[in-house]
């Protein structure tokens, strides 16, 4: 976890140097704003990981000497399949058509996305099967 944190913090720190340099050299606001966005993208998650890394034991994947056995057990829930991504994608597709061709695509688009979001949530509760 520690190296993960450091990588992100490093990127954030570098972008901080760049943004400060850019701002004082150019005075251009839009680029500076976007660079600060990049700083935050590095520092926020990086800081979070680092903060956790200090508070927990290294995981098996953080330790060079970990054995395969230590990784045994339940890793997480990995559903074999689900219809809901397709349904949500269809809704998003209709949403795209609405943007380009007319607002009458909007109700079915939002409807499908809502159904899919609900479906995916209840599916997760049941443990990931279709």
């Amino acid at each position: 976890m520690k190296i993960e944190g450091i990588v992100l913090i490093g990127i954030g720190a570098f972008m901080a140097v760049v943004s400060v340099g850019y701002w004082f050299w150019s005075g251009e606001p839009s680029g500076t704003a976007m660079l600060i966005g990049a700083v935050l993208l590095g520092l926020l998650p990086g800081g979070y990981y680092y903060w956790w890394a200090k508070r927990m034991k290294p995981r098996p994947e953080d330790r060079p000497d970990a054995t395969t056995r230590e990784g045994a057990g339940v890793i997480g829930s990995f559903p074999h399949g689900s219809i809901w991504p397709l349904v949500f994608g269809a809704g998003a597709f209709l949403f795209g058509l609405a943007l380009a061709f007319g607002w009458w695509f909007l109700p079915p688009a939002l409807g499908l996305m809502l159904v899919a979001a609900t479906g995916v949530t209840t599916q997760s509760r049941r443990g990931g099967a279709i």
């Binding site: 054995t67 395969t68 056995r69 045994a72 990995f78």
Partner: peptide, 17 residues
């Protein structure tokens, strides 16, 4: 050792489409 081991993943029983 590693031969003997099988990592387990939480997947529910289901019929494969």
């Amino acid at each position: 050792l590693s031969f003997a081991e099988e990592t387990k993943y939480a997947t529910t029983e289901h019929h494969e489409p």
